[in-house]
Each structure stands twice: as C-alpha cells, then as structure tokens.
Amino acid sequence: MLDIIVSVLTRTIIAGTPLLIATLGEIIAERAGILNLGMEGIMSAGAVTGFIIAFTTGNPWLGMLAAILVGMLLSSLHGFVCITLRANQVVSGLALTMLGLGISGLWGKPYIGRPLPQRMPRLDISGLSDIPVLGDIFFNHDWYVYLSVLIGIVIWFLVKHTRMGITLRSVGENPKAAESQGIPVNRVKYLAVMTGGGLAGMAGAFLSTAYSGSWNEGMVAGRGWIVIALTIFALWRPGGAFLGAYLFGGIFVLQFMLQPLGVSPNLLAMLPYLSTLVVLLIYGLSKSGQRRMSAPATLGEPYVRGGR
C-alpha cells in the first residue's frame, strides 16, 4: 500500500512539472495583459526542438536551451501581432497554436519513435535521496523538477515583493498610469510574453527529453490548454500555480491508476478536461468566486499610447 502511495505521489510531481512551468509562463504574460492561447503550440514546438537538439548533440541541457529560445521566438511573433499591430489576442493565439503544431510535425517527422540516448539526468542529492518514502517522493527527480520549483519561487518573489513585480502588474492593470510613471508599457509586455513563451518551450522540452525521452506528434495532448485554465484556477498567482499544477498532475496519474479497475480508459481520459470545467464551475457558483476569476483589468486589450 505504501508503495502505491509513494509511486502515485512521485508520479504526481512529475506529471505536474510541465503544467507548473508553463502556467508560471502564462501567469507572467497575462499579468502584463497579454492572453497567450498559443501555449499548446509553443509547448509542442519546444518539445520537438528540445528533442532534436538533445538527440543530435547528446546534451539535454542544450535541448532545454533551444526549446526556450524557440518558445521566445514564437511568442515574440504573438507579441508583434498583438502589441505592435494591436490585433485580436484570441485569434493570434489560436494561429500560434496551429503554427506551433504544424512546425513540430514538420521538423519532428524523422525523429518519431526514436529513443533519446541521453535524457535529462537525475539530481542526486546525497543524503536526502536516501531517506525512505520522502526521499523517493521528493528527492529522486530529474533537474527539471527542481528547476520548476526554483523558477516558481523566484517568480513568486519577483511578482510579489519587488519593484519589477509592481511594474508588471501595473502594465496589465492600468497601462496609462504605468506610462505616466515612465514605464515603457509595450516593452514590458514584450518581455512578459516572451518570458512566458520561453517557459512554455521549456515545459515542452521536459515532456520530450525528461518525461518520455522520445518525440511523437500530439504528445503535448492538450496540456497547453489546461495551462490556460490553470492560470485562472491559480487566480494569476504563482502560489496558486503550484497547487493547480500538482492537483492536475494527480488527476493525470489517477487516470492510469483507475484503469486496471476496469473503468473505460476513454472515460478516464476525460478526467483532466472534466475536472477543469468542474473546478471553474465551483468558482463560478458564487458571486465572490466569479469576481476572483476576473482577469487582470486590461487582459486581451491592446494598449495605444496616448490613446483614449
């Protein structure tokens, strides 16, 4: 029994890791007022780039770096379209998803099903990793898991306790006031959306170079969309991202745990998506919950300098 609990919790943390990384990215972008619906596509492009680079160089770290760069590049396109050209963010995000999925299919075709010789290594923390139970659950993972936690803490600190965080939030909440304070509003928006894209790329690389160690079309499997929902669930707070990511990580694991009990795998596969709706519905049932679900004030709206 203890074995099962340990295994479930260990896998929950692993399954929650890509969700955590990408959700943190989306939180940053949305805090600056940019809705990036392209996460699914960016994660996919990150997964394929990370895999190809890790495969050809034999170095998963270079794969991670390349995935981050591709994520930043793709999201800068979103930035250009939405910030500079003030286009509709919903449609631009959807276009980015199609583009990301398309590019990854095109680039990844020769690599489908080939195993990665060198996956992202485990971080062996001597002493901690050997602790029974706790060591297995928390201290026996690859670098991505610890990096994601570290990034989460850093972002939480930056958003909540520093001038940078105030700048970011003011750009999303009241860009006009921010600009009168001398903040370069659109530059901050670009930085935020590109940081978010970089993190989404990294989340994708985790899937292909650490989680599965292979590339396959459709391997992101809707996680990018769940990330958009998790951002709302987290109420745009990094702390909430931790809770949401591991909760949904758990739901992904549950799906496989219940399968041997004879429940239809297809009905179980609905679980993450159904839970997303249920969680949002719970917020939506009360007026105060609906208010808390309200996004940063100018989310989705383009900012026109000196405009109305």
Binding site: A87, N88, V91, S92, L94, A95, L96, L101, G105
Partner: peptide, 23 residues
C-alpha cells in the same frame, strides 16, 4: 512524403497574416 502537419503550418501562418492585415 511530407507530414500531415504541413497543412497546419499553412493554416496558422495564413491566419497570422490575415489578422496582421486587419491592422
């Protein structure tokens, strides 16, 4: 011998440029 996803590149890119054109 190109993958099915080629069409997605097509679609995504055209959509990006269509909304750019709106500007």
């Amino acid at each position: 011998g190109m993958p099915a996803a080629t069409v997605d590149v097509f679609n995504g890119m055209i959509l990006v440029f269509l909304i750019m054109g709106d500007f």
